[in-house]
Amino acid sequence: MPRLLLALLLLLPLGAAAQAAPPPASTSATPPAPGPKVLLHTSVGDITLELFPDKAPKSVANFLQYVHEGFYDGTVFHRAISGYLVQGGLYTRDLQPKRTHPAIASEADNGLSNLRGTVAVARGADPNSGTAQFFINLVDNRRLDYAGNQSGLTWGYAVFGQVAGGMDVVDKIAALPTRAQGPFAADVPHPLPVILSARVIGEEAPASAASVKAPARATSAARPVRPTGRKGG
């Protein structure tokens, strides 16, 4: 009997330790890979964008296609509204639109919000009209978030990335004086901030830009609808 009790006492610490020990870490689970980053080298300074392919795969693939083609090289930020957003990605220095690929389906219902520093697909009244243009939110623009599929106003704008570096450059663009110029009645920053190059960090630069100018009728495409109460332009 004493030998049995002694054996039980010796086993208790081992049993308690086995229950308290955490299960071994899984070796198969890996953290999600960080999204690709794009460096916008502009006439005002550099802006680094981190993209969210897990949340907006179509929007990210579309944006990267234009980057790989050198499409954004020489385009401008043609719209800047302090306390709202800055927008670019389609127009040349003389405010002529470039030819784009077909529009993509909106991913505005991906759960991402138009917070300060996020990057979203610009579009026209049709939610599925986004092409090359994008905008950067200067403040938390939750009114631009997806609220339902009833109309273009409730559909919102698809966030597909965020500024990972150079938000001060974005703020400098927003602080530039604006005026009417070319096809736009207002909000064109002066002087025009130019995207000198757009490159995926870690990838080789494209050999050449493949895009050409488009007909003038494309000038109104892919501009975010202004919330009620703001003047048009």
Rank of each mutant, 00 (worst) to 15 (best):
M1I: 05
R3Y: 09
L4H: 14
L4I: 12
L9C: 12
L9V: 10
L9I: 08
L11A: 13
L11Q: 11
P13M: 12
G15E: 14
A18N: 12
A18F: 06
A21V: 02
P22T: 02
P22M: 02
S28E: 14
S28P: 02
P31C: 02
A33M: 04
G35E: 11
P36N: 06
P36M: 07
K37R: 14
K37I: 01
K37T: 06
L39C: 05
S43W: 04
V44R: 15
D46S: 08
I47N: 10
L51Y: 02
F52Y: 14
P53I: 02
D54V: 08
A56P: 07
A56Q: 04
N62F: 07
F63S: 04
F63K: 06
L64G: 02
Y66H: 13
Y66F: 11
G74N: 07
T75L: 08
V76T: 05
F77T: 03
I81E: 15
L85D: 03
Q87H: 11
Q87T: 00
T92S: 14
Q96I: 01
P97L: 01
P97N: 06
R99T: 06
H101I: 00
A105S: 09
D109H: 04
L115G: 04
G117H: 15
G117E: 10
V121W: 00
V121C: 11
A122D: 07
R123V: 00
D126T: 05
N128W: 00
N128V: 00
G130H: 00
A132T: 11
I136G: 04
N137Y: 05
L138M: 00
V139W: 03
D140L: 05
D140A: 07
D140E: 12
N141V: 03
A147T: 08
G148S: 06
N149H: 11
G152A: 10
L153P: 03
Y157I: 01
V159N: 13
G161I: 07
V163S: 11
A164G: 04
A164T: 01
M167H: 09
M167E: 05
I173H: 06
A174W: 02
A174Q: 09
L176H: 09
L176M: 06
A180P: 08
Q181T: 02
G182Y: 05
G182R: 10
G182H: 07
G182W: 03
F184V: 03
F184N: 08
A185Q: 14
A186Q: 15
V188L: 12
P189G: 02
H190Q: 15
P191L: 00
P193S: 04
V194A: 07
I195A: 06
A198E: 10
V200M: 12
I201M: 11
G202V: 03
A207R: 09
S208H: 10
A209D: 15
A209I: 01
V212Y: 15
R217K: 12
A218V: 05
